[in-house]
Design a protein around this nucleic acid. Structure first.
Lengths: 208, 208
DNA sequence: TGTACATCAGTGAACGCGCGTTCACTGATGTAC
DNA sequence: TGTACATCAGTGAACGCGCGTTCACTGATGTAC
């Protein structure tokens, strides 16, 4: 079947949309990106897709079901940004490379929060473990864990220090992200922000 | 004038409340404590005080003005909890005491977030610098700064390390607070939470 | 001390908004014969 | 290949909710004379 809808840029809007569910989720992601999870509102989502505001009920039990789906997409985008940042970093098993990749994980975390605050908040809206990411990129937390495991394997961290390291690293990076995104550090110029992040990451690295 | 209202426990409700403004703010704080800043809603605040829902406009320009006031109270409570925790810690200029007091600052921060999540979120709702705390307790950020200054004075931290130390410490503690309050760490038993906080604080201390 | 009056702090009704959700419906699609 | 019919995916109207805000008002208070 040919969807032939404006969303898919094929011409006229058909009565049967063909992929309304997907279109609704995408519009939801757009809204979340613009204004956070509270903006994912059934009526506005339907409006954007160009469909009556109750059509969504053919595809979602209620607003919450849609929001969960949107949150999963946000989480996937989050993981993808982090993974891309790690992939762009020096590969290989050498200690410097392993440490650089862990640092890239943290930088990717903050990058996503800064560039996509709405999606960041949407991804965090449900207890972070609640939502399985939709897509291929691993969950942010899994990436952090893997990075710390690699540190131990590379001999950069003792197994004793590994204990609780996720929490400490996550806390520092997440806290920085929140401060920069909506706290007192909102609006500081990028260069200064990067310098601050350097300090945070150094403290974490040396503390671990 | 005798206020003579149920809020002040003096008997019948007078036509002229006498201290409606204060009563509204207190009800707002209560709502914020129960369910966060979004729950500070003019109609419900008025309902709780037992007054018609537009009486508030005699005392506040709009909902936002009330919310700012409530946020200032929340911030004051926040600072007070931290200050109390510091005050309950060993005093004096000895290095161990100085370090212990800085740690108490961080523990107080997390304690407030855990015990008063609604007020914590309300205090953070405006850019943290936006709201001057209402009351005597110093602003949380000021307490952290003072603690770090004392570390330098006590010779526990080099002036070079002092640079950006607020950001790093605040990030770690704030991030931990958020994770515990509404993130994946929500609901872990207190003992375990304390152990995790120990790790976070150790990482910060050694990292600085 | 008593009274007229200005001022102030409340009331009650209403407006307009946007939301989630449900209802009975209708047009489109696909399938059995 | 054509047709009857079941199924599915949408529509349009409506309900009920709670909100912020405004309006004209009224009862209480305090002050000038």
């Amino acid at each position: 079947m040919d969807p032939a809808c404006w969303l898919c840029q094929h011409g006229a809007v058909p009565y049967h949309h063909g992929s309304l569910r997907e279109a609704l989720v995408e519009a939801g992601v757009q809204l979340a990106a613009e204004s956070g999870p509270d903006a994912v509102v059934l009526r506005e989502v339907s409006r954007r897709v160009g469909v009556s505001h109750n059509a969504a009920y053919r595809h979602f039990a209620d607003r919450d079901a849609l929001l969960h789906e949107v949150s999963a997409r946000a989480m996937a985008a989050f993981g993808a940004v982090m993974a891309a940042r790690v992939a762009a970093t020096r590969q290989g098993p050498e200690p410097e490379a392993v440490a650089a990749r862990l640092e890239a994980t943290g930088r990717g975390y903050v990058q996503f929060a800064v560039e996509q605050p709405g999606l960041f908040r949407t991804a965090c809206a449900f207890s972070l473990g609640d939502v399985a990411p939709h897509g291929d990129a691993p969950h942010p937390y899994a990436q952090l864990s893997a990075g710390l495991d690699a540190m131990v394997t590379a001999g950069l961290m003792t197994p004793a220090r590994r204990e609780g390291a996720e929490i400490a690293a996550w806390s520092a990076v997440h806290g920085f992200a929140v401060l920069v995104m909506e706290g007192p550090l909102a609006g500081v110029p990028e260069a200064q922000r990067e310098a601050m992040l350097d300090v945070v990451l150094r403290v974490v690295r040396e503390g671990l």
